[in-house]
Design a protein around this nucleic acid. Structure first.
Length: 554
RNA sequence: GCGCUUGUAGCUCAGUGGAUUAGAGCGCUACCCUGCGGAGGUAGAGGUCGUGGGUUCGAGUCCCGCCAAGCGCACCA
């Protein structure tokens, strides 16, 4: 990456200056390369001279001159300019920029790939909503963030596995089972109400009907408060299938579906994890329950892992689950994507991971703030229990998967977002996502048209590209690898839609200023067709990373 | 009360300690097709970056107080 090469060159220059006695021997800070906001300040800049000024007891401008003069200007860079109060600005060479078009075309759909992951195995778990009801619109945010982050990490060189945790073992599953059995029994004319704490949504009736179809009256004699496991598990399966289908509609898929229940079966992961905690002295009996002594690890309070009833809590499951992730499956890194309502769980899970002997730094928990919904001025309250919910599949149906993803992705995970259903629907045809896809389709049309007139532009000479709009488009394309790096490091996939928009703008501007297909100048036409093909590839890469379609026509 | 997150243009949001004028989209105003897709381009109006201090050569960005909003603070998940 050119940015890294520049940082290395600056470091070398500074060290050489010290060795040559032109600069006092000081410890170099990290070389920060920034992209100046203003065009006249070049393509890259460093503030190193200002950061050195104090320790070197020298004027930053003088330091800048000293260092700049030692940076070789050849190849990619055309100029290193010193600017007050102590910047060194770097300008990419137009000839080098033009040549990058060929380089991008050669990389094709792999352009943007980097290797900071170095093949490390990283698991990313996201959504993992309880299989007790259909996914809500809010789950769309977690699904989008998780799936795009996974793609970004893959592009960054990580070996990524996407996972959904199916909570099919806790008390919510019991409640689900009793509700479902009541609905089923009602179908046989029995006068049984669903539990007070049950799930009132009509979808439970549908699941009940499906079970009647599959099982007939086999469970018609079951006691309402003791749903048979086979019955409940089948109900869960049906819900999971519906969740899987909803996610697919949004363009979200997984490599693995992990069942919480499995922690308590077979290999006995739950017992193993608890034994590790016990051996480490992290479990204490008090008040009739078993507690994780997290207070000793710096937490506010201890947390129950086994209730006085003998049943494990969610925390116990989660500890065993992460024992499986780190110790059994040996992931180098684990990323959990959670809604802000789980924020309080972060530090105790990290403490627990620490307690089972895993460096908590290997566990990243990405919290996204919750989504609120409204229709115009009306606030929509969401509750699975009240039945007043906006379903994810309704959003996808209303505004389309691409627009929904673009919307969910455009905000940083830290920001609370407001989803105006009316606005989303109204703007669906003028959504930013279409602006990007339009650029892609437009290029496809140009290339199609070119094929009618020019047999091949393989022999086009990219060195002919020199127009400011052409070079600006190349500059924008070259940002993708840097962006992938930034997004992977900071776990911030929300930059992608903004970048895609800027890239589309750069193309549209080029298109307006530069005639591509020109019968009077075939050489330039061929060069520009190469530029178009490269732009199309980069747009496609950005769209694909976001999990969106790359339409040839719209 | 304690913890996490947020407060930037009319609206929805970007903004990696820097460079006399803080950006985008939508909305608003005025322009641009005798040529490849106008779902496009150009220009403009619109800001006490919640607020008060502090650190720094330099703060929307870092630290502290205050105000406001969301989410937590269970033997729910």
């Amino acid at each position: 990456m050119i940015r890294d090469e520049l940082a290395a060159a600056i470091e070398t220059a500074a060290n050489d200056a010290m060795a040559g006695g032109e600069l006092p021997h000081v410890v170099l800070p990290e070389i920060v390369i920034e992209r100046p906001a203003k065009h006249e300040h070049g393509d890259y800049a460093t503030n190193l001279p200002m950061r050195l000024a104090r320790s070197a007891r020298a004027n930053p401008l003088d330091l800048a001159k000293t260092i700049a003069s030692r940076i070789p200007m050849s190849g990619a860079f055309a100029a290193a300019e010193v600017a007050p109060p102590g910047f060194i600005n770097f300008r990419l060479s137009p000839a080098w920029l033009a040549q990058q078009v060929a380089a991008i075309l050669a990389e094709g759909e792999h352009f943007g790939d980097i290797n900071i992951g170095a093949g490390q195995r990283v698991q990313i778990e996201f959504v993992s909503a309880n299989p007790t009801g259909p996914l809500t619109a809010g789950n769309g945010r977690g699904g989008t963030i998780g799936s795009v982050l996974a793609s970004v990490l893959q592009a960054a060189g990580y070996d990524v596995e996407r996972e959904y945790l199916v909570n099919d073992a806790g008390t919510q599953t019991d409640v689900f089972g009793r509700t479902l059995l009541a609905r089923y029994l009602q179908l046989f004319g029995q006068d049984i109400a669903i539990p007070d704490d049950g799930y009132p949504g009509d979808y439970m009736i549908d699941v009940g009907k499906q079970l009647r179809e599959e099982f007939g009256d086999r469970f018609a004699d079951a006691a309402p408060d003791a749903p048979p496991p086979e019955f409940v598990l089948r109900g869960i399966d049906i819900m999971v299938e519906s969740i899987r289908a909803d996610l697919k509609r949004l363009g979200v898929t997984y490599d693995a579906w992990f069942h919480e229940r499995s922690l308590y079966e077979g290999d006995g992961l739950y017992e193993t994890a608890m034994a590790v905690l016990r051996d480490g002295g992290h479990l204490v009996d008090k008040e009739g329950a078993l507690w994780f002594a997290s207070q000793e690890l710096g937490e506010d309070k201890d947390n129950v892992v086994v209730r006085s009833t003998g049943r494990p809590t969610y925390l116990a499951s989660d500890i065993a689950y992460h024992y499986d992730k780190f110790i059994v499956r040996k992931f180098d890194r684990v990323i959990d994507v959670w809604g802000a309502d789980h924020q309080g769980h972060v530090s105790r899970l990290k403490a627990a991971v620490d307690a089972i002997g895993v460096d908590p730094a290997r566990l990243d928990i990405l919290i996204y703030q919750l989504v609120s919904f409204r229709r115009g001025d009306e606030v929509v309250r969401l509750s699975k229990r009240s039945g007043n919910i906006v379903l994810m599949r309704d959003i996808v149906e209303e505004v389309g998967a691409d627009a929904a993803r673009f919307f969910f992705l455009s905000r940083s995970a830290d920001s609370q977002m407001e989803f105006d259903l009316e606005l989303a629907k109204r703007q669906s045809s003028e959504n930013p996502v279409y602006y990007v896809q339009y650029a892609h389709a437009r290029i496809a049309a140009i290339l199609e048209k070119a094929r009618e007139r020019i047999s091949s532009f393989d022999d086009g000479d990219v060195a002919l590209l020199a127009h400011p709009a052409e070079l600006e488009l190349v500059r924008k394309m070259l940002q993708l690898p840097e962006l992938v790096q930034q997004m992977a490091r900071a776990m911030e996939p929300h930059h992608l839609p903004h970048y895609a928009g800027e890239l589309a703008t750069a193309f549209h501007a080029f298109y307006t200023e530069c005639r591509v297909i020109d019968d009077d100048n075939e050489a330039l036409s061929k060069a520009r067709l190469k530029l178009c093909a490269a732009a199309k590839a980069v747009l496609a890469r950005a769209l694909t990373l976001m999990g969106m379609a790359t339409p040839e026509r719209m």
